[in-house]
Simulated assay, not measured.
Amino acid sequence: MTRLLHLDASARPHGSDTHAHGSHTRRLSARFVRRWQALRPQDPVVYRDVGQSPPAPVSGAWIHAAFTPAAQREPWMRETLAESDALVDELIAADVIAVGLPMYNFNVPAQFKAYIDNVVRVGRTFGFDRSRGAEPYWPLLAEAGKTLVLLGSRGDYGYDGERLGHLNHGEASVRTAFGYLGIVDAHGVAIEYDEFADARLAASIADAEARVDALVEDLVAARSLRDAA
């Protein structure tokens, strides 16, 4: 059994396949999960809409609580970390994390940055020990065999190549954060040309959907081989 965590980060509440002004990333993430379930209906899916219900941003109280050893936390600390604990529990339980991740001003939406800040947790997803000297940090999820799938959209085009690749701080920042936790098996598909709203957008959508379908088939095949081993 493979457990999927389906996250959406778009501020738009609907997919572009069902609403005229809907989200392309919701369209792709829903397609990814739908195709996966068609091939592996036994695999459970946990869904969290970060775009519509974002986690609370990290605060000074949050930092104080997170860096206090669990056995020494006061009740207010446990309450402060309750939402973060729930998000971390979902991430740890998941085998595949599929994220609908639009680009907002060359980076991730603020809602998803809040999510990242809540799941990058000392003692839970990364370790820290000053006695290790110059390398006090280490990933805690490196041996978990998790896969990250980023399903994006951009208003312009060329963010995966030389034209605008240097301005794409979205997927790169997410890969960095998850890699820091030990999740390094990462894949991405994105729709571009959204602001052009012409035939190029239609072609990009068709291409992205085909790539999502192929990616699901590849990942399902790999998971099935792992299950059989």
Rank of each mutant, 00 (worst) to 15 (best):
Y159F: 14
F126E: 05
V212F: 11
R26S: 04
L201S: 14
A93F: 11
V46F: 06
Y159M: 09
S153L: 08
P57S: 01
D207P: 09
I97E: 09
E192M: 03
H19F: 14
Q52I: 02
Y115M: 08
G100K: 08
V122H: 14
L164I: 12
E171L: 12
A229M: 10
V122F: 09
V108R: 05
R124K: 11
A11H: 13
D213H: 10
W62T: 00
T2K: 09
G161M: 05
V216Y: 10
I63S: 12
G15Q: 04
T125P: 06
S204G: 05
G15K: 03
S131F: 00
D95V: 07
W36N: 00
L87P: 02
I183K: 09
P75F: 10
V45R: 02
V184M: 07
P13E: 05
D85T: 00
E135C: 00
R3G: 11
H24D: 04
G155Y: 01
Q42P: 08
E143Q: 15
R3M: 12
F128A: 04
G51S: 11
A30E: 14
Q52A: 09
H166R: 14
E217D: 08
S224T: 14
G133V: 00
N168T: 04
H187Y: 01
A208R: 02
A222K: 15
G60E: 00
E162W: 04
E135A: 03
S59N: 07
Y137F: 13
R211Q: 15
A228W: 09
D117Y: 04
H166W: 07
L140W: 02
L87R: 02
K113W: 14
L5K: 04
G170Q: 10
R12Q: 04
F128N: 04
H14N: 12
T125L: 01
D49V: 04
L39H: 00
P109W: 12
W36H: 02
E79S: 02
L219G: 00
Q42C: 08
V99K: 09
V88T: 06
D213V: 06
A61V: 11
L215N: 03
L7S: 11
L91M: 13
P54C: 05
R78K: 05
L39Y: 00
S173E: 01
G182V: 03
L87D: 03
P109S: 08
A70P: 09
E192C: 04
L81P: 02
V33N: 00
R200H: 13
T147V: 15
R40M: 01
G161K: 10
G188K: 09
G100T: 01
D198F: 07
G165P: 13
V189R: 02
R200L: 02
R3V: 13
Y137T: 14
N105A: 09
H14T: 15
Y159P: 15
A222W: 15
G170A: 12
G182R: 03
